[in-house]
């Protein structure tokens, strides 16, 4: 799309079923949401490292304050600066990924324009709460990241991220013993809430490359567009 010339969304209005269709030649967009401190940025960093050699990717971060998450990715040398865009969200991280996605769409398109061609854009939400969810106008798929130290009741509490995200990641399983979280309870409750939608348990301490989540992302990429 030319800079500002094409009609916004004509490539990508959600279908009646609510899904954003893939457009050939344009990158897959995956959102990562979840509560504060659940490990979204660390997971994004892991995915960037795991996929870097095979996928042309870029990241949009949505910080509540300033550009902390974008800076983390840059400091850790995960991606060069031109592949990271930070969106500021005005106290309301969920608004920027759900109700008013204009700044995020602009960031995605900006990356597409400046770095063609891209295969994948990861959109990381600001840390929020269990009510956060991505608009289908912004991303094709969404991953919701919770962690065991938030309590093993989190899956039972539900919310759109826990229930309806395309992938639920239960992070920091290495801490389960210390925080008294029962992973089997979390698995059972998640299945009850999510039915067939997948859940992956993750410890970036034990598995820095986030193998299973990377595989899931690869599968989504392979679905093509």
């Amino acid at each position: 799309m030319s800079a500002g010339g094409g009609r916004p969304h004509d490539h990508a209005a959600p279908t009646a079923a609510g899904r954003l269709p893939r457009t050939p030649g344009r990158p897959l967009r995956i959102g990562l949401g979840g509560p504060v401190g659940s490990g979204k940025t660390a997971l994004v960093a892991a995915l960037c490292r795991s996929l870097a050699g095979e996928t042309r990717l870029a990241v949009v971060t949505n910080d509540i304050y300033t550009t902390e998450d974008a800076d983390f990715l840059l400091r850790n040398g995960v991606l060069p600066a031109e592949r990271v865009r930070a969106v500021e969200t005005g106290c309301c991280p969920h608004t920027a990924i759900r109700d008013d996605i204009s700044a995020n769409l602009e960031a995605v398109e900006d990356l597409e324009r400046s770095l063609p061609p891209l295969d994948l854009v990861l959109v990381e939400s600001g840390g929020d709460n269990l009510t956060a969810t991505f608009s289908h106008g912004l991303v094709h798929h969404q991953i919701f990241v919770v962690d065991v130290s938030g309590g093993d009741k989190v899956p039972r509490k539900g919310g759109p991220g826990v229930i309806a995200s395309d992938l639920l990641v239960v992070n920091k399983t290495d801490l389960a013993r210390q925080v008294g979280a029962d992973l089997s309870v979390m698995a059972r409750d998640a299945e009850e809430k999510r039915g067939d939608r997948p859940v992956r348990f993750l410890s970036l301490v034990e598995d820095p490359s986030a193998r299973e989540v990377t595989t899931w992302v690869r599968e989504r990429l392979a679905e093509g567009g």
Binding site: V87, G90, C92, A96, D100, S102, E106
Partner: peptide, 11 residues
């Protein structure tokens, strides 16, 4: 203010 034109992020 709910019109999705980005104003929510500005004070």
């Amino acid at each position: 203010g709910r019109f999705p034109a980005g104003g929510h992020a500005h004070s």
